[in-house]
Design a protein around this nucleic acid. Sequence first.
RNA 1: GUGGGUGUAGCUCAAUAGGUAGAGCACCAGGCUGUGAACCUGGUGGCUGUGGGUUCGAGCCCCAUCACUCACCCCA
Length: 428
Amino acid sequence: MSENVGVKLLAVKGMNDVLPPDSAKWAAIERCARAVFHAHGYRELRTPIVEYTPLFVRSIGEATDVVEKEMYTFTDRGDRMITLRPEGTASAVRALLEHGELARDPVVRWYYAGPMFRHERAQRGRYRQFYQLGVEAFGVGEPTIDAEQIAMLVEIFTSLGIGGLETLVNSVGGAEDRPRYRAALVAHLEPRRDALCPDCQRRLGTNPLRVLDCKSPSCQTQVADAPSILDHLGDAARAHLDGVRAGLNALGVAHRVEPRLVRGLDYYTGTTFEVRVTGGDLGAQNTLGAGGRYDALVAELGGPATPAIGFAFGMERVALTMPAPATEFEPKLDVYLAAHGAAARLACLGAARELRAAGLVAEMEHRAVSLKAQFKRADRLGARAVVVIGDTELAEGVIVLRDMQAGTQERVPRAELVAATQQLRERV
RNA sequence: GUGGGUGUAGCUCAAUAGGUAGAGCACCAGGCUGUGAACCUGGUGGCUGUGGGUUCGAGCCCCAUCACUCACCCCA
């Protein structure tokens, strides 16, 4: 196992480098999301990438896959159990309580961005280290905020040019509703146990709700006429779901109620939602972002009873789905400075700084290579203009300004460098 | 954790029935001794993932191993 690693240095399995130009695409996605978050009054929360293990066990749930088999857990030098965060909500709640934020303001809205870690088998759109952006809103129990968050998620994706979106909404009910529904579901499935796939036979005991979205055809058949959670919601949950839908309609967000939409983390209560993309480049992972209410979690972690809702989306999946090529997001090079001779190179240094001070993107050649090579490079970089400085120009107090699109060039007094270059950039 | 696919130049891929490893792109140089993209010429670059086996001979066949990848479970 270790020999290969010694010979060839590789990134850790399931963890990827993001190189240019893809990194520019990532930056654009993050920029867009932050703009939407800010516009809605969400402020940034930054938390450590690790937490003490019990935080995740208590919030996500002991019996979930994430906790059972996917956490990167280790002991530090003080023999404390530490875990690389597998998601963002637990840390947010911890920070909320640790700093007593609710005492300062009954409504707290945060967003976060950063890497998450889950030790599972990597595949397209799913990695062991993945970058998530998400929001959490504490202290608001009204359904309009649910609708607003769902709309935010959709807005981010649409403004990034992603089409074919599908918004699914459901309610998993309140603390009283879920056990009732669970019992009804088990009562329905138990007699048909033999027709379920092995996994679902096991789930029947551990987490029967998960049978609902099993992809196995035989399970789908058994589940087709299973009782719907919608029929088991209490009045409060029912009314809340209606409120969410009313909000979505008011915002013009197309959506569908999907009674089989079940989230994998235990803390969800009431509203759950998911935005998927149909078709596209994502492979089997077509969920771009998802979220829901977790009205009981803050209290469960020792805080005051506080309603809460949040969502998160995966950067990798969004980047894979966005139609625009990554290069589109890289800064355009306005001017490339080519030097002929050591003295000229020194002169380019200052000239480049002047151009940058005027807001232009300028790059100069530092290596002593032929002019031909410099032009070749300028062309490859897509420079709009090239400034040439050589001994002749230095002596005459001019520079050569070449329009790389038109293929024309002129000699310009050194003093007019910035103005002439700016003017050239404005030309079509 | 389970199953499938694939490993040949920096990238994308060839290599007929086992018979001396190739192209395009990219990069460098020249054709134009201070000028890009097109075109032409030349050049750098590989122990064919690794280790074994079969064979006169293996990129090709067999075994193992590692890596990547897709899918399942689950999820963003």
